[in-house]
Amino acid sequence: MAKIVASVNCSHVPAIGAAWDLGKTEQPYWQPVFKGFDYSKKWIADLKPDVVILVYNDHASAFSLEVIPTFALGTGAEFKPADEGWGPRPVPTVHGHPKLASHIAQSVILDEFDLTLVNKMDVDHGLTVPLTLMFGQPEAWPCKVIPLAVNVVQYPPPTGNRCYNLGKAIRRAVEAYPEDLRVVIFGTGGMSHQLQGKRAGLINKEWDNNFLDLLTHDPGKAAKIPFIEYVRETGSEGIEMVMWLVSRGALEDKVREKHRYYHVPASNTALGHLILENESFKG
């Protein structure tokens, strides 16, 4: 039986990818960002997941305004790094797991979540930056990756509660998959940031840390946070944090917090990072 054993949450700021690609990780500005992942790299190397389900958002790369899917699951065999205007990031092609992905699609759609299925799309920094943070820069990514792109660009995104429940449906789907696979789910984006208008640069450290507490210990409450609160308290792009609820829903109610990191700034953004393991998981 396949099993989701843990979740990884982190921001996916494009400048982090650029800093890595340009060899700036030891510079004083970036050093504290990457330091937060020293533990995580070792943790995931020890855990050796077979598959990562990576919840992220596309930033006008694979999807423009011609098609705006709310939830788009990557069921294809491979996904190439997108050219976001400065050439594709020099990172390996992402290999999917079409069989598990099709199984998840079938299961969660019958569970009343109307996914869009995508066999061909390029993946942008939203997906590749978290992989870099967790795995560094290998020749090939060490596991299969199933992308789940969530619209958070055009308001409204799916509600936090919807995301949380989709996570639960994904958990049920994975657990019904006959092959033995160890799966980790990533929920990325956030934390507080605003990239527009006169409030650009907004950071709410207190709120962000409270969200990390809620996500760990009282996710049902976190799922009820209304959009107006996200936007007012954490900025227009802070709303990306609904994606963290997908990954949280995919875990058991009781979890162990293995690692937490918070740092300001990563460019315009508060960098947040959380690793949770199912309490029942004996790692």
């Binding site: 069921t75 069989k99 099709s102 079938q106 759609i109 299925l117």
Partner: peptide, 10 residues
Amino acid sequence: FNAERSRVGY
């Protein structure tokens, strides 16, 4: 024609 056949017939 379900998700599994879609994968096989892609």
